[in-house]
């Protein structure tokens, strides 16, 4: 059973000065999968996300989306001597895209420490994420050309539908930061979905949620995956959530991949227990 590949991260190493934050990480996400990325604090999970979304250019390695390389790099300049990772010389090209370009290609994300637009309403927060698909130029948009009006109306309708799905339509005109914490997390997911992604990266979506909210979140993620025809890669600390919905799990420790497999395999893996689960439970 070979599924269509969506994301392929190959041999990513991210080194800051002398510190190797992500060490030779390779992972794959196939169409329709929900994949977990776990590991103790400081293992390099968020750094891996930042590499995939273009916030950081990796020191070495490549990222491919739908079989097309979107990011590729190898040690350059001072890093040539400093480089401590593996696979030196395997990657020859340099390709670096800014985060907005990668989002346009279909990768959307949420943030570990919620990053909503503080001065804007819930509705506007979602509308902003649709701005990148706007076809009318700045003159058309300012002077309200026919096309711009149609696009704006369409955007508003789509945004309303999204808010309805997340049960946020009553809070439409509230300031985003005035929402309770759980709803802010939902709004972040709604905003990410507004960019019409193929791959959704969730950075600790269940952080700070109680067991009941976590259970709701699990159902929500599965529903999103089915309705929007997505693949999901999530960082999560709640084992209940990770073991409950992830089809495969990658475990990071000190930047390096120590295990991968389905939830049962991970739960019984001695290295994982040593590094992570043994401490947690």
């Amino acid at each position: 059973m070979s599924k269509e590949n969506v994301l392929r991260v190959s041999d990513i190493t991210m080194q800051f000065g002398g510190v190797v934050a992500v060490d030779d990480l390779s992972l794959e996400v196939n169409k329709g999968e929900i994949i977990g990325l776990i590991g103790p604090n400081g293992a390099g999970k968020t750094t891996a996300f930042n590499v995939i979304t273009g916030v950081y250019a990796p020191t070495n390695g490549a990222v491919a989306l739908n079989g097309e390389v979107i990011v590729e790099n190898h040690p350059q300049g001072k890093m040539k001597n400093l480089y401590k990772g593996k696979n030196d010389g395997k990657y020859k090209d340099v390709k670096v895209l800014t985060p907005d370009k990668i989002t346009k290609l279909g990768v959307a994300r949420t943030f570990q420490n919620i990053r909503l637009y503080k001065g804007m309403t819930v509705f506007e927060n979602v509308l902003v994420a649709m701005h990148m698909n706007l076809e009318s130029g700045i003159f058309g948009a300012t002077f309200r050309s026919g096309k711009a009006k149609r696009e704006e109306a369409q955007m508003r309708e789509d945004a309303m539908n999204l808010l309805r799905m997340f049960d946020l339509e009553k809070n439409k005109d509230d300031l985003a930061t005035s929402l309770p914490y759980g709803k802010q997390r939902h709004l972040e997911i709604a905003r990410a979905l507004a960019t019409k992604p193929k791959l959704l990266l969730l950075d600790e979506p269940a952080a700070g949620m109680n067991p009941q909210e976590s259970a709701e979140l699990m159902r929500l993620v599965e529903r999103i995956r089915d309705e929007f025809d997505l693949s999901v890669l999530m960082i999560e600390h709640h084992m209940q959530v990770v073991m409950g919905i992830c089809e495969r799990i990658y475990v990071l420790d000190y930047g390096a991949l120590i295990a991968q497999g389905n939830p049962e395999e991970i739960q019984n893996n001695p290295r994982v227990i040593e590094a992570y689960l043994g401490v947690d439970d």
């Binding site: 979304t53 916030v55 800014t98 985060p99 907005d100 370009k101 989002t103 346009k104 959307a108 994300r109 943030f111 990053r115 909503l116 637009y117 503080k118 001065g119 804007m120 506007e124 509308l127 902003v128 994420a129 649709m130 701005h131 990148m132 698909n133 706007l134 700045i138 948009a141 300012t142 002077f143 309200r144 711009a148 696009e151 704006e152 955007m155 905003r191 990410a192 507004a194 960019t195």
Partner: peptide, 29 residues
Amino acid sequence: VLLINSSYGRAFKAIRDDEIAAEAMGVNL
């Protein structure tokens, strides 16, 4: 004022509120 109330104006405000999030939502900074 028309500009500020258009989609571009919203993108400007998004940059003001959070550059990183704006970029992650596809706004070319």
